[in-house]
């Protein structure tokens, strides 16, 4: 009973991840892609606990889930800071033009 429930939850999570993966491929902005990656990373922690339930080794797989959630959080923060600091090509050209006008 419990095992069938775990298998059902795992398969349903996997099927529902397909739209999110579509958003990674077709997202118009890089933030959309990063958001979808973040969602999938969070769901992978749940998937690890489900696998642990199936193998009767939840105590071991929970540690993997903690590590994965931490890594996911750090990657989301780092990428958002990175995307924040980058300036687009138009802004760079505008800055160079402003320098030329000054000199």
């Amino acid at each position: 009973m419990i095992e069938y429930f775990a298998i059902f939850m795992g398969v349903a999570l996997f099927v529902l991840m397909i739209p999110v993966v579509y958003r990674i491929g077709a997202g118009p902005t890089p933030f959309d892609r990063m958001l979808a990656v973040n969602v999938i990373g969070t769901k992978t922690a749940v998937l690890l606990v489900i696998i642990g339930t199936l193998f009767d080794r939840v105590d071991m797989f929970v540690d993997f889930a903690i590590a994965y959630a931490l890594l996911n959080f750090v990657s989301a923060i780092v990428v958002s800071r990175y995307l924040n600091r980058t300036i687009s090509l138009d802004e760079m050209e505008a800055k160079e033009n402003a320098k030329k006008i000054k000199s």
């Binding site: 902005t29 923060i77 958002s80 924040n84």
Partner: peptide, 11 residues
């Protein structure tokens, strides 16, 4: 929520 907030801020 923290990572969501950071992404929204960056966007």
């Amino acid at each position: 929520p923290t990572s969501s907030h950071a992404l929204m801020r960056a966007a």
